[in-house]
């Protein structure tokens, strides 16, 4: 991993938080990006660098600023201010050059109802000047194969299912072999098999040197797919880095420990109650579950003390914060926090 993450003044609500990532060779460079919708600040001084070959996940609850960030990256929206470079191209100075090296797939991507699949793709193959008709046809077939739609090339786009439509738009984004792919919820509407194909396709692209920035609400999937992620909330960056790093920074410090004890179970419950860092001790079947908020050393000490007390321990499981929990916590903080200060 090429990340070197430095977090300054990290705090959970992200009020004074910025992540400075020092990539080896950034394919996506966002510097001080801000997007305003009148009085509402959608993206607030976002700074991210993503090196080439990464699959970078953008995570956050609704209204976090993901789609606004993607639209700016895709040159569909001018930000209030900020600099964005894609594959070294300053996108606001050279938008047409940037469009040649990147591809954008919007959330719930639409397709024109009056075109056939090959016509839809050929329109963009022509716009990207992918050669003569035979060369374009060859490339279209490749892309349709990649998303398992080769047998649909001569049907009207409107006859495709939601998942097939998503795959068709993915094929469109791959047509011109972009160096940077910007995918907003690409897996929405796809069946499990298609999702798996998408994951494999993205990994192959990344292996070939393309950089993928992707958002998804299916966070377990994102954690499997991405080599690094960043979490946004209310327009601000909360944390960025590898999946484990983000979990460590944003996850809850307490975890659920489940203890399997042979005999003297009730006695063990009583012994645990009242111990430091231990809370919510309960019996779950034949096991004892409790919340533990201490450090790893404290946890080791607890296990050692249990053994010294002659409890016969046959199992110990630890359950950490999932991504879903992290996101729920972040969303929960939105409800508690004051709304953005109006500007007039």
């Amino acid at each position: 991993m090429d990340w070197d993450c430095q977090f300054r003044g990290a705090c959970f609500d992200g009020s004074d938080m910025s992540a400075v990532l020092h990539p080896v060779s950034p394919a996506i460079q966002i510097q001080d990006l801000r997007v305003d919708y009148g009085k509402f600040v959608a993206v607030d001084d976002l700074t991210i660098s993503v090196p080439a070959g990464e699959i970078f996940g953008l995570v956050g609850p609704n209204g976090a600023g993901k789609t606004s960030t993607f639209k700016v990256l895709a040159t569909l929206m001018e930000p209030t201010y900020g600099e964005v470079r894609l594959a070294g191209i300053e996108i606001f100075e050279q938008p047409e050059a940037a469009r040649r090296v990147m591809a954008y797939m919007p959330d719930l991507a639409p397709v024109p109802s009056d075109l056939k699949v090959w016509e839809f793709l050929d329109c963009f193959a022509e716009a990207h000047e992918l050669g003569n008709a035979a060369q374009r046809r060859e490339r279209i077939e490749e892309c349709l194969d990649l998303v398992s739609l080769a047998d649909k090339n001569n049907v009207f786009c409107k006859t495709l299912s939601r998942g097939q439509t998503q795959r068709l738009v993915l094929a469109k984004t791959l047509l011109h072999r972009p160096k940077v792919l910007i995918l907003d919820e690409p897996a929405s509407g796809m069946d499990p098999m298609s999702r798996r194909q998408l994951r494999l396709a993205l990994r192959n692209l990344a292996a070939d040197g393309a950089t993928v920035i992707v958002s998804s609400h299916i966070l377990s999937e994102l954690s499997e797919m991405c080599t690094s992620i960043c979490v946004m909330n209310r327009g601000k960056l909360l944390a960025a880095g590898s999946v484990e790093e983000v979990r460590r920074v944003l996850g809850r410090t307490e975890r659920i420990l489940t203890l399997g004890v042979v005999e003297r179970v009730d006695e063990a419950v009583g012994w645990l109650q009242g111990r430091e860092h231990v809370a919510e001790v309960r019996l779950a079947g034949e096991r004892i579950a409790f919340s533990f908020a201490g450090s790893a050393r404290d946890q080791a000490q607890l296990v050692s003390d249990l053994v010294q007390e002659a409890f016969l321990i046959h199992a110990l499981e630890e359950q950490r914060s999932t991504f879903e929990e992290i996101l729920l916590d972040v969303s929960g903080s939105n409800a508690a926090a004051a709304p953005n200060l109006p500007l007039s």
Binding site: A74, T75, L76, E96, A97, R99, R100, A103, Y104, P106, A109, P110, V111, P112, F124, A127, H128, K172
Partner: peptide, 10 residues
Amino acid sequence: GTLDYQRLSP
């Protein structure tokens, strides 16, 4: 929403 595709055409 397909207009955005044309916006993105180089």
